[in-house]
Amino acid sequence: MAIGMETRNLICINCPMGCPLTVEMDGRTVVRVSGNTCKRGETYAHKEVTNPTRIVTSTVRVVDGASDMVSVKTKEDIPKGMIFDCVKALQGMQVTAPIHIGDVVVADVAGTGVDVVATKNVERRP
């Protein structure tokens, strides 16, 4: 093995299969990914060793809704280091019913360029 070559073992978190991945790296460059059973695994491995990201899910209070809370998520994954800033931006937030899946709850959350969207339909309280 050449100098600077390193192997990292990861568990793919894209889906509940949890494939065990082996990433061979030369310094900061990914040389080879193995153990994945789909393309997502390879993409995940590249990201995880260079710029790890996560989808963040949470809830926001609803005014006048049939439910008190609406579940939300970042529309895309955001850098791992931004997770707490994202959650903080959602604290104390309120939205007014009706709200539907895909509605933007916070645009460009914590400067990530990613929107937070609703993941549940909450109609007005009857």
Binding site: I13, N14, I55, T57, T59, V72, K73, T119
Partner: peptide, 16 residues
């Protein structure tokens, strides 16, 4: 409310 549902059924990652 977490994500990871539906990759098998809908080929996309959904929340519950």
């Amino acid at each position: 409310i977490h994500n990871g549902f539906g990759l098998h059924t809908f080929k996309e990652e959904l929340t519950g």
